[in-house]
Design a protein around this nucleic acid. Structure first.
Length: 426
DNA sequence: AGCTATGATTGAGA
DNA sequence: TCTCAATCATAGCT
């Protein structure tokens, strides 16, 4: 309990020239009695600490019920306001902290703060766009998303905890101060100020939380980008699968979205990696066809052997009058002879499949084509120079792929396994 | 260490 | 949004 030296309660004059009007009543005859009352209250307040709790409680009650108590308290509150506490008054209206604003903006941009943005947060799409495949559902992206949402979750949980704690503490302090205001002069303004101090303290804790969240996001992001930048050669099997597709679709080496997905699955790589691979392959093949000649022949021969096996099986099937189609058993696989450029497809341009009675005719056509391919392959064996065998006819004079209809994205629905190309017909 | 092959990135263009 | 072309960065080989 603080003593208020220099306060003259008689006439309500305060040291320093401050004059406080009497709370109520203007009658001079009441002055002495009131003076007596106030002196009494002050005395009781000053000696309250010397007494036991029970006694103090009783005194407190007595004081609370004292008729002069409201007047005295309002005077004391005003004195407090106008002396020490008022000095800080002006400084307490803080402008928003620029650092906090920066952090808030950053968290918002990263998709940590603010409303949830579905599967693709702002940063994920930013990173994805930088990588050149915004719609790619690659392992890295889902991994990044998962980790980001983890950070987001932790951030929000912690924030909620802090806010809850802050509210609880504020309520507690306010109740305490209101309670105390019955025994000591505490103005509502003072309570307000105390609340704002509490809020400031909690917001500084929140700032730490925001700062570490930002750091976590930055680290995650840089790790994610580093992992992508780090180059690792694909497995031999993966390269083989990609090359097989490339050389069997040499007239139009633009896999459809579906084909890319399938290749990605088969090679255990991402769709964007497949796109990168084909992009690189097309450009490098075009730049130096001679260098790739041998590779091309190799894969042509390989495809032919696969074709032989498949057609043999198909012939056997048609002989036993089975209603099976050449596609059955491995539909969707681009390794099938009828999925590559070498062979006639079971599917026409509109994407409609030939059925039933047509099977025999198609098998015959495949056998014919196979003869052609096998003849060529034999030519390769007899002529190791080989340059005449694999004709890069897909390329036009301008370096573009001649019947490269439209890049995959446009034609893809009818492309994919079973589209018609003419690599072997020329 | 130097070289080549190859996966990834970037910017322009359609 | 996709592709091309140039380029970067690294793996793997000699």
């Amino acid at each position: 309990m603080q003593t208020l030296s220099g306060v003259t309660l008689a006439g309500h004059t305060v040291q320093g020239g401050m004059a406080v009007p009497p709370p109520h009543g203007h009658d001079g005859s009441e002055g002495d009695g009131r003076k007596q009352d106030i002196g009494d209250i002050l005395h009781q307040i000053m000696t309250i600490t010397d007494q036991s709790l029970d006694e103090a409680q009783a005194k407190k009650h007595g004081l609370n019920c004292h008729r002069m108590k409201p007047a005295l308290f309002s005077v004391l509150c005003e004195i407090k306001e106008k002396t020490g506490l008022s000095i800080r008054g002006a400084q307490e209206e803080d402008p928003p902290d620029p650092q906090l604003m920066r952090l808030d903006n950053m968290l918002l941009a990263e998709g940590v703060a603010g409303p949830e943005k579905g599967s693709g947060s702002a940063s994920v799409s930013a990173v994805a766009t930088a990588s050149g495949s915004p719609t790619d559902n690659s392992i890295e992206h889902s991994d990044y998303r998962a980790k980001l949402s983890q950070i987001r979750q932790i951030y929000h949980t912690e924030l909620e905890k802090y806010e809850q704690a802050c509210n609880e503490f504020t309520t507690h302090v306010m109740n305490l101060l209101r309670e105390q205001s019955r025994t000591r002069p505490i103005s509502p303004k003072e309570i307000e100020r105390m609340v704002s101090i509490i809020h400031r303290k909690f917001s500084s804790i929140q700032m730490q939380l925001k700062q570490s969240t930002c750091e976590a996001v930055m680290i995650l992001r840089s790790r994610f980008l580093d992992a992508r930048r780090k180059r690792r050669n694909f497995s031999k099997q993966a390269t083989e699968i990609l090359n097989e597709y490339f050389y069997s679709h040499l007239s139009n080496p633009y896999p459809s979205e579906e084909a890319k997905e399938e290749l990605a699955k088969k090679c255990s790589i991402t769709v964007s990696q497949v796109s990168n691979w084909f992009g690189n392959k097309r450009i490098r093949y075009k730049k130096n066809i001679g260098k790739f000649q041998e590779e091309a022949n190799l894969y042509a021969a390989k495809t032919a052997v696969n074709a032989a096996h498949a057609v043999a099986a198909a012939v056997q099937n048609s002989q036993t009058n089975s209603p099976i189609t050449p596609n059955s058993g491995s539909s969707g696989s681009f390794n099938l002879p009828n999925s590559g450029d070498m062979f006639m497809s079971m599917q026409n341009r509109n994407g409609d499949s030939y059925q039933g009675a047509q099977v025999g005719a198609n098998v015959q056509s495949q056998v014919d084509t196979l003869h052609h391919v096998i003849n060529q392959t034999a030519g390769y064996n007899n002529d190791l120079g080989g340059n005449s065998m694999y004709n890069p006819h897909g390329l036009d004079a301008n370096g573009g792929w001649q019947d490269a209809m439209t890049p995959s994205s446009v034609i893809s629905p009818t492309e994919g396994p079973g589209s018609v190309h003419s690599d072997t017909s020329n």
